[in-house]
């Protein structure tokens, strides 16, 4: 549990009486799981700076490059990687920017400044999404149990990014690494769906020995209308 729980990076003093701020990602309670060696491994990639950038690349692409130090993807479904900074193509005027958390604030400030004259939108979504890393030589097969995307190397080359449905949740899939033995995907999924997807992914890996991950689904439900009765 402590793995993904940590204090904020800046050394801010909490107001009197509050316990020190503590962060927790949606999968903080999930340890990474693995099947037979090399087959399939799931792990959360917590705490990265993530931003949605809405921008017409034809008008602001140049300014963005100067401000961010990396290009916008030249074509749909592509990503651009520069060191630890990554840009995903999400749509013709929509991009996901990934930066190390420590750089996030300065990065955002720089981008905002560089794009000041241009119609754009830069939104912090660091906590909106989390990323599940899916790696191993069965990664493609496991994901194909959840998505209609064609993940065969011929259809989904390294660097490819695609938005699709994974089981019943929308997400963005990125193939970071592609050699057959070391295929490494990252699946960006909304906070509220992360645990669901984690469990379904683990279920997909059962045949290679990934341990079952049971969703905490023992909540008490009350769905019928009972509010009207006065005791």
């Amino acid at each position: 549990m402590a793995e993904n729980a940590k204090k904020p990076s800046e050394g801010l003093e909490p107001s009197e009486g509050l316990t020190p701020p503590e962060r927790r990602t949606p999968l903080a309670l999930r340890q990474s799981v693995e099947g037979a060696p090399g087959t399939l491994r799931l792990a959360e990639t917590p705490f990265a700076g993530k931003f949605i950038l809405r921008l017409d690349p034809a008008r602001g692409g140049e300014a963005f490059r100067e401000a961010a130090g990396l290009d916008l993807p030249a074509a749909p479904l592509m990503s651009v990687v520069n060191g630890e900074r990554v840009v995903f193509w999400l749509g013709p005027d929509e991009f996901l920017l990934l930066v190390p958390e420590a750089e996030a604030a300065a990065f955002a400030e720089g981008v905002e400044k560089g794009l000041a004259g241009e119609h754009h939108q830069l939104v912090d979504v660091s906590d909106y999404y989390t990323a599940i890393e899916i790696s191993g030589r069965k990664a493609r097969e496991a994901l194909m149990k959840l998505t209609t995307l064609d993940l065969h190397p011929r259809g989904f080359p390294v660097g490819c990014v695609a938005g699709s449905n994974f089981a019943r949740a929308q997400g963005w899939l990125w193939l970071e690494h592609g050699e057959e033995e070391t295929a490494r995907f990252r699946l960006y999924v909304r906070w509220s769906m992360a645990d669901y997807l984690w469990c379904v992914l683990a279920d997909a890996g059962r045949e290679w020995g990934v341990p079952e991950q049971i969703p905490a689904a023992d909540e008490t439900f009350l769905t019928e209308s009972v509010h009207s009765k006065k005791a």
Partner: peptide, 8 residues
């Protein structure tokens, strides 16, 4: 431009 920030 519109962007969902529900879960942020």
């Amino acid at each position: 431009f519109l962007t969902s920030v529900t879960e942020q």
